[in-house]
Design a protein around this nucleic acid. Structure first.
Lengths: 219, 219
DNA sequence: GATCAAATTATCCAAACGTATAACAAACCC
DNA sequence: GGGTTTGTTATACGTTTGGATAATTTGATC
């Protein structure tokens, strides 16, 4: 037995894969794609580099898995927010929009992480599929909420409105995250609700508790 | 004289720096930040790697210069578009919006290039300043066009509207570029004009020649 | 046309990269 | 509790990285 050999505990495939994916995301968010080397990922996950290739065919495959995990997480956050909210359509839409424009979604680390994968999304057809599926899932959820509003709208109109509201949220998410100091607390959410309302011809501000937890916002 | 030594011509500092910056942008757009190695950049620019350090203190400084160049180029495209357009406020705003949602701005390579710098923007205070300056320049130009509309609006309202319209354009630019095939030709521009108009309470579609060059759009 | 500063190339270096493979040991089975 | 499996570590390899420095050629000056 080698005294200098590192002690370790076996773990389930599930846990190891999750740990490696989380480590990858952390490193990309902190230091960009270049920081996510196999050695750094392994160190962050508390294992040695060789183990990566035991669970993933290559580093690229780990990268793909990490991107899938990111997209799944981000798109689900929106839908999670409308669970437990009242049945009033305006209220539900407002909750959906608000959740996407507040931490942990509105977060510079999330933007950096997302942007770090952009190039691979363009290059790798599989990742483009993941991106598109995530985008459409989110947009469809948004469109369903819009369709539930007490208005009459053609399918074409609904599609355009969903695309526009989605884009508005994306843009606010981007700049609100990157230039956090350039906006007042709650300003991004307020502008989002106001503008989505303007696009759809409804008043969302009236149907949203602008400060769902004032204590936390001030802290 | 070494027969094998590479032949070369002297060039102005201006040209060399521009060539190196252009090569850097090309490579980042094509293969992501990792593809922009000093050797690849030099090869693309038609020189040898050592020359980079002759004109830039380090690779990082070249990277910064390339990002500055990108931001300057993108923000100016919007303002360029309203030159020569009639004096009618709606018409000018429509031209500004349209230009930002069409090639060469609406372009997956531009998005990938922009995203490739995201991490450095977060890390490097100098790049964050460049980003913020570019963002504010564009938004201020937008706000000036909005202020010129035949309406009455408070400064606070104007600020919010400019932020919202800017975000809407950003979001449409992003998804319209990445998922080009998911939208009909001209759909992004139409949705942009329609939604910006809805936010501001004016009809931009009526004031824009939706197909400024139908032949080109169909080709 | 000899001189000379500057532009450009060539070469070298230590470090870090992803990957491959062999050695080891922890948990499980019977 | 001995044997087997396989999760995990250790080590090595060839390549590429950004940076430093030396050698050389260019174009301008006088």
């Amino acid at each position: 037995m080698d005294q200098n050999r590192r002690a370790y505990r076996r773990d389930s495939e599930e846990n190891r894969r999750a740990a490696l994916i989380a480590a990858t995301q952390d490193l990309v968010a902190e230091g960009g794609p270049q920081a996510a080397t196999v050695r750094a990922i392994a160190a962050r996950a508390g294992v040695t580099a060789g183990l990566i290739r035991h669970y993933f065919q290559s580093k690229d495959e780990l990268t793909r898995a990490a991107y899938r995990s990111l997209i799944d997480g981000m798109t689900s956050k929106g839908s999670d927010a409308i669970e437990g909210v009242g049945a009033q359509p305006e209220e539900r839409l407002a909750a959906f929009v608000s959740a996407s424009l507040r931490p942990p979604v509105l977060d510079i680390a999330a933007v950096v992480l997302w942007a770090g994968y952009m190039h691979k999304v363009r290059t790798d057809p599989e990742l483009l599929t993941v991106h598109e599926a995530g985008y459409l899932t989110y947009r469809d959820a948004l469109q369903a909420l819009i369709a539930a509003l007490p208005r009459t709208a053609t399918p074409e109109q609904l599609r355009g409105e969903a695309i526009a509201c989605n884009a508005l949220i994306d843009g606010l998410w981007l700049e609100g995250s990157i230039l956090q100091h350039a906006f007042a607390p709650g300003e991004i959410v307020r502008i989002g609700l106001q503008s989505v309302g303007a696009i759809l011809g409804v008043d969302l501000l009236a149907h949203s508790s602008l400060l769902p937890d004032p204590g936390k916002i001030l802290s």
